[in-house]
Amino acid sequence: MTIKPTIIGTPASGNALMPTRVVGLSDEGVTHAQPAPTVRPTAITPTALSGETAPAIEAAPQPAAHKPTAMPYQAPAPAVAPAEHVKASVLPGVQRKPLNVSYAVLAKRFPGTEPLLLERTQLVLHAVTPQAMTSTGWLKFGVDRQEELAELVKRRLEMMESHPGRATSQHLRRLHALLRDVLDAMDGGFFKKSASKVWESVEPEVRQLDALLHKAVPALSVFLGEMDSLKLDAQRVGVSLFATSLAAEYLMDVVGPEVHQVLSARALSLTTSQALVREQQQMLELDEAQVQELATLVQDGVLVQLPSVYSQLAGLSAKTSDTQRYLAADKLNEIVQFIQRKI
């Protein structure tokens, strides 16, 4: 008889069932149970019994979501190598150094030259590096100083065009002509007007010219100040040109023959510019002297003498005595002659 195996409980997943062996029976005539096929476990849902409350199944706690903390961005500091670790690379080549010429060498090369000019020549040479100079650079040597001279000449011409002395000279000539008419009328004559009539006709214009000449005095003073400033600039440009010319002569002794001809032409041009700046200085001296003389004529001459002329001519009439006429004529003649000598 074949005995079926009794299965108690749910077999483990994936384990084969072993047959049950009855004690007392021999192996003979006993049919052994074959291994059952693999049984998959059945999912059993728990059933809640009546009257009992199923225990609540607590869900496993979920980890709280954390927001990332915003951190300000900081750029990493550049790595700077210590200064002592940096070594300059040495490349073969020609060293380029500015000229360093001593004062004694220049004094020996240019004897009798003023110390100021030699010092300025030192500065000009120190700004020159012969090894770095190109042909274009040699052609432009000293051109900036010549451009300063050209600007100086332009300023002087513009200043003379706005010269307040021109209008002042015209006022003086007109005043001289009016006072001369009054003086001629005092000489008398059958066909001439009386001096009193002539004075009445010209007095308004004389007083107008007097007011214009009073205003001209401050303008002439300002103009003289501008001329003094221009004279100082002309002196500075002259020194610069002279020093640059000396530097060009010195460079011709130390540079190669390939630039000697160019430097020679530049030295000649600079010498010509020196003559031009001296001419401008002389003309400025002459212009200043003329303006000073004109200002003196107006301020210390005409404006001082005109009040006495007004006083003498105020009493002129048809019945003026010879003494009054003589005194008035004397004052008129004095100022007329003074203006005539100056204009």
Rank of each mutant, 00 (worst) to 15 (best):
L139S: 07
R236S: 14
K140T: 15
L224V: 06
V182A: 03
P164D: 01
D181M: 07
M252N: 00
A248L: 05
E226W: 09
A216I: 07
L246S: 02
S196Y: 04
T244Q: 02
E203R: 12
G189R: 05
Q208I: 04
A195R: 03
E258V: 09
Q261K: 04
M252R: 05
L139P: 09
R174T: 13
L157M: 15
G189W: 12
L183R: 07
M252W: 00
P257V: 06
E158T: 13
Q146W: 05
A219P: 02
D181C: 10
Q170G: 08
R236A: 10
D181L: 13
K215L: 11
P204T: 06
V254C: 05
A248T: 10
Q261V: 08
V259N: 01
M160D: 12
A243R: 03
D233W: 10
K215G: 08
K215N: 14
V198N: 01
E226L: 07
L178S: 05
Q146Y: 09
E158S: 13
V198I: 14
M227P: 02
S229L: 13
H260P: 01
E158N: 13
P164W: 01
L251P: 00
L183V: 06
L175Q: 01
H176R: 11
L230K: 08
R156Q: 14
A177R: 10
D228P: 01
P164K: 07
L241P: 00
E226N: 15
L149P: 00
V239H: 12
P257Q: 05
V217D: 02
V202C: 03
S221D: 06
R180V: 14
L232V: 05
D187L: 14
F141L: 07
G256H: 08
E148V: 12
A247V: 04
W199M: 15
V198A: 06
L152M: 11
L246G: 00
A216Q: 07
V198H: 01
R156S: 15
L220C: 06
V222L: 14
E161Q: 09
K215P: 03
L251Q: 03
Q261S: 11
E226H: 12
L209Y: 00
L183S: 06
S245K: 02
S240C: 08
M186K: 03
R156C: 07
F223N: 03
K140F: 13
S196W: 06
G142I: 04
A248N: 06
S229F: 13
E258F: 08
M160K: 04
